[in-house]
Structures are given as structure tokens and as C-alpha cells.
Design a protein around this nucleic acid. Structure first.
Lengths: 336, 336
DNA sequence: CATACAGTTGTTACCGGTAACAATTTATAT
DNA sequence: ATATAAATTGTTACCGGTAACAACTGTATG
């Protein structure tokens, strides 16, 4: 019975079938108790038979509530953000909120355009992974008037509210740990230079300088990967054969570097100690276990979503910055 | 100048400021040439000053075009789907289409509910990662009348169109390769039992039986992880100390198993050979390099998106099933 | 100079829900 | 029985874009 131009059924179709107005059907769908008992089953079966699918557009149009939260991450293939997103969705789902996901490849202009798109779909709130934004973004967000929560960083002043960690302190702590184990020529390996990487480098440099050691960082514009870690390691020992420690801006680089050491016959941790950042599962499984700064990625997502829910329910911002704890996983790649 | 109840500006606000009707502003925004030259700059500056953000809801409401594609994946933390999504977005972005992402944790009922949600937002098309669906899902999709493309599998009959690989053949090929290298007690390690895993197991069993070998698979209901790979390996050798090969349903399990072998002093590949599935970057970096079935994950996403675009532009389905090639990466973990 | 025509702007109606209010029926109290 | 309240259903209007059409300008053409 599928004629070709059968567009999807509306409340009106259901109502016609039952012989009531669409308002009655609408009431039944949002709260069956508002409709007389004998109507309930009739409406139910009409809905069933027609395969009625609700349509949010009219409601969004009339009261600008979409029950969707826009989530912006720089990259989806970066495991860090996959876990953040899982945290967000875990928390959002019971409230019936949908996430609209977009990514911007670490480009501020792409972020701008994604935010515009998400706002044009009337998201009720935005969770951003960046702490630095273009002027247009600031303007758009202020005009849009939806709650905005920034994640990943707990240091820079937030637009409204931030949930993150202190990247600089974390990097400083790990560097100090490496230094305390006797390393003197620690090189920092970085890939893409986003704000958080720069914060980490500052922490690393502070620790090195305080110990009267010479900081040195190697970086590339490309995305981080295992291969890139291998390449950066080779660069590091070529430029400075004395290198006895590598602090990598994330676990991927660290793992790539570690494997390359093994391939080159460089003993880890005896000759070179290695540390990563974030504490992904694999760091615990590999041999030697990788030292890493463990960050609360999923928790960050959950708390961001929880704060978002609170604010959508009218709660005021209680804490502009929520700083989450990190910890150092010593692993086996740092040596004695 | 921000009074509290200033809702975000509409076309009408811009029009009032300029002294024209909103229709004129609407025309300017979609094609400036439709408006007289002297008005253009005036409208532009009014748009700029008010920070006008377009609103898709009314348009979606009146002609059901959202320029959004719903994408459903079982898991976001699974690297496989992260790459598929990247492929989809890469292809969709230039066309100005937005992706709405949702995941369902491998549960058919959750898939059902996510599809309903995405349809209620009026997505113009759906890309699904599953080939088996509930009856309600079939009904909803037929009623909704939007293009549906299924990915990951190229064997089961698609709802409309599928783009995937032949999992069974891929698993059979790899098993045969392992057998050809002299292994006789190959165990299949599986985690969550989805349709694709079952296809792979069938391929593995077919190859084993054809070689007069006894197939044996170990599985768990939990999600796959490095840790789970380690656990399953221990189970395998406990249940059958003769085990001389492991074919794992994905790279994570394989890597976890491989590390655990090293930890247990089991030589890979001499004592036990190991193969994974999908061919993630790390398989090329690790030592020994992991043998794996390399699947075209990003390409699958790209082609799915390209087919979606074609169909939204009115093209007919030219090929119901597009089967993409896989290949075997021998690595170093299979031995001679 | 009338007619045609392109260029520009305005008017009207519509999409499909739901809030707000009105109308009607049914139940309860006095 | 009558008034009053509660339960149920109906009516109207609105959200903010844009398609379709109308209206009006100025210019070109025979």
C-alpha cells in the first residue's frame, strides 16, 4: 500500500484515523493519562499502524528547545576525545538529550563554522574542547545565549565554565619525576601544536630549567601517530646522542618511540626513559609498561554533561572552573 | 546592551533594522545577486551587527530537508568506527551536510531508539553499521522514506544498499594462511558476539574443517580490550596446551594476547602465531609486526557518504552491494 | 507612446507540533 | 436538583524561514 508520494505520517494522520483532533493525540503521546481510558488503546494502535514518527522541528521552532547538545572535538580518531564523548553521552542519555557531534581538525576557523552550523540546528547547549576562540565565535555564542562549557583545560579563563586539568602542572610533575630518576637530557616530543601542547611544553621547560637542565623540544605539524613517534625519536638522538629521556605529548608518540628504540637496540629504560600522556589502556598492557600521565578523560565528559544538564535546568554556575585530578603512572619505562 | 530576555535575532530583526521585509533579507542570504546592489552592504552590516545566526528549523519543517545525515555506530571508542566516521565526514563536508552521530552499544533495541531519535530530527538519510534489524526498525525506515545505507558487511541482503567487506572470506583466507604455515591448533578469540564476529567465525571454521583440523573458539560477552586479549590467551593455553596459533577477532585482542605471550615467555611466532583483524596503525609499529586482515575502514565511510549524496541528488541505486577489497598483512607474527 | 520585459521588493500561506484558552461532558457536593 | 469542580476534548495562534505569486519600477522595442 505504499504509494510513492506517501510522506511520513503526522499527528494529523493519526488523529484522522482515530476521529479526534491532533491535540488529543499529542496529549496522549506526552502523557497518556491526559486522555480518556477508552481512547488510549485506539490511539496507540493507530500510531502503531501508521508507524508515526515524532517530528521535533515544529517544537524546536516554537520554543527553541531541541534537546540536543552540540559537542565539538578537534578530532574523532584521537582516542582521548572518543573517551570524552563516551563520558558525555553516558551522562546525557538518561536525560533524553541527543548529542550532535562535529570536529574541526584543530582549526579555529573550522571551529567557527561548526559552531554556526550547530547553532543553526538550535542545539540547547555547546561543549567545546578549546579554550581559545575567534572573535566571531565569542560574538555568536553571546548572541545565541545557550550554555557553553569548555573542557580539557583548567587554567585559561573560560567563556562561562570550564572543566579540565592543569596540563602545565601535569607535564611539570612528570618531568620532575624523570629528572628525579637521574635523567639529564630529556627531550619533549610534540606533534600538532595546539594550546594544550604549549601548556605542557611550558610545564616541561619550567621543570628542566629549575633543575638547571637544558630543555629541548621537537615537533611536527603533522598529526601524532605511532610512525611519527618513531621518526621523532630518530630525530632526537641524531640531534643529541646524549638523549636519555623522552617525554611525549601523548601516548601514541611515546609508544611509537618506544618500539623504535627496541628496533634500534636502544634499551628502555636503561638508555632512554620514556613517558607518555593520557594513560590509555595499552600503556598498561605493553612491555615495558609505559609511564604516563593518567588523565580523567571519561570523567571530564561526564562532568561536562552533568553541568550542562544542571544549567539547562536553570541552576546557576557554582564553580567557573572545575579542575579534575590527574596522576602519574610510573610504569616500567622510567627506570630506577 | 544585553537585556536578559534578548532571544537570538531572526530574519525579521535584520529586516526591521534595514527597513525591508524579511523575504528580501532571506534572498540576500541565499544569493546576494537577487538583491539590489545598494541594499547588499546595508543588509550585510545589519546581519553582522546583530550577529544573525540562521535557523534551520522552519525550513526543515516546511520541506523536510535538514541537510543532516544520521550515522549510527555500535561504539565510538572502537577505532574501527572512528575511522569510518572520518571517511563519512570527509566526503560529506564539502556538500555542506552535517552528520548526526549516535551509538547503540551493539544493542538492537538501542539501535531502534537511536534511529527513532535521528528520524525525529528529520535527518535526510541514514548510514547504519548493522545488517540485522528489528521489525520496528524496518517499519520505521520504510515509513520515513529516507535513503538508508548499511556498512561493514557485503554478504547479508541489504535493506536498500550495502557497502562492506566479506568478513567470512577474509577470516577464511587468514586462517588458511596460518594453516599453510604449519599451524594445527589455531584458536579463534572473540569478544562481543555481533553478526560480523559470527561471520568471521564461520570463515575460520570452514578453513579449519577443510584442513581436517578441529576449530575452537573462545569468547566473552565483555567488550574487547588489550586486557581481554591477555585473559583469553591464558584461557586458550590452559584449555589446550598444544595451541600454536591465535586468530583474534580484532587487533586489540591480538595485541593484548601477544604481549601476554611475551610476558609468559611464549615465543611469538615460534611457539604461537598470532593474527588480528582490521590493520590498525599500531600493528605496523609493534614488535613483532602483527599479521592482520587489513580492512578499508575510511574508504568504506567515504563510499557510503558518496552513495548517500548521489541518492539524495536523485540518482538510482546502481549497485545494491558494493564489496570492498581487504588484504592480508603478513607481518612477523605468523612465522615461516 | 504603448507594450513587453527584466529587475526588484512585497504579500500570503504553509510546514507540524504544542501552549493557552474555551467548550463540553461527567462527577461530586450540597 | 443545582451548583461547582474535575476531566476531557476542541480551537486558535504561533514559532521563522521560504515557495509562489503579485506588484511595482524602469528600460528597451516596435
Amino acid at each position: 500500500m505504499t504509494t510513492k508520494k506517501n510522506k511520513r505520517p503526522t499527528l494529523q494522520h493519526v488523529a484522522d484515523k482515530v476521529g479526534v483532533t491532533k491535540m488529543t493525540v499529542s496529549r496522549y503521546l506526552r502523557d497518556p493519562k491526559q486522555v480518556s481510558e477508552q481512547l488510549r488503546s485506539v490511539i496507540e494502535s493507530a500510531v502503531e499502524e501508521l508507524g508515526y514518527i515524532p517530528n521535533r522541528a515544529p517544537d524546536i521552532l516554537s520554543n527553541a528547545k531541541s534537546h540536543a547538545i552540540g559537542v565539538l572535538v578537534p578530532s574523532l580518531t584521537n582516542q582521548v576525545f572518543a573517551e570524552v564523548i563516551r563520558g558525555i553521552e553516558t551522562e546525557l542519555e538518561p536525560s533524553g538529550y541527543q548529542t550532535m557531534l562535529a570536529h574541526y581538525g584543530y582549526s579555529p576557523l573550522a571551529e567557527e563554522s561548526r559552531i554556526a552550523t550547530l547553532l543553526s540546528y538550535n542545539v540547547d547547549g555547546l561543549i567545546l574542547s578549546e579554550s581559545v576562540h575567534t572573535e566571531r565565535v565569542r560574538k555568536m555564542l553571546s548572541v545565541a545565549g545557550v550554555p557553553v562549557i569548555e573542557i580539557m583545560d583548567s587554567v585559561l579563563p573560560p567563556l562561562e565554565q570550564a572543566i579540565g586539568i592543569n596540563n602545565e602542572a601535569a607535564a611539570r610533575d612528570m618531568t620532575e619525576l624523570m629528572i628525579s630518576k637521574g635523567r639529564k637530557h630529556i627531550v619533549y616530543l610534540a606533534a600538532r601544536m595546539d594550546e594544550r601542547t604549549q601548556q605542557k611544553i611550558r610545564g616541561y621547560e619550567a621543570a628542566m630549567l629549575r633543575a638547571n637542565l637544558q630543555p629541548k623540544s621537537l615537533q611536527t605539524v603533522d598529526a601524532s601517530s605511532f610512525t611519527m613517534g618513531a621518526k621523532l625519536l630518530l630525530d632526537a638522538i641524531r640531534e643529541n646522542p646524549q638523549t636519555d629521556g623522552l617525554f611525549c605529548t601523548n601516548d601514541d608518540l611515546a609508544i611509537g618511540a618506544l618500539y623504535e628504540c627496541q628496533r634500534q637496540g636502544i634499551a628502555v629504560p636503561e638508555q632512554i626513559s620514556i613517558a607518555g600522556f593520557h594513560g590509555h589502556d595499552i600503556t598498561k598492557a605493553m612491555i615495558p609498561r609505559l609511564a604516563t600521565v593518567v588523565t580523567p578523560r571519561e570523567e571530564m565528559g561526564r562532568q561536562a554533561a552533568a553541568q550542562m544538564m544542571a544549567r539547562l535546568n536553570g541552576a546557576p554556575i557554582e564553580q567557573k572552573i572545575i579542575e579534575l585530578p590527574y596522576y602519574l603512572e610510573v610504569g616500567q619505562s622510567l627506570g630506577g
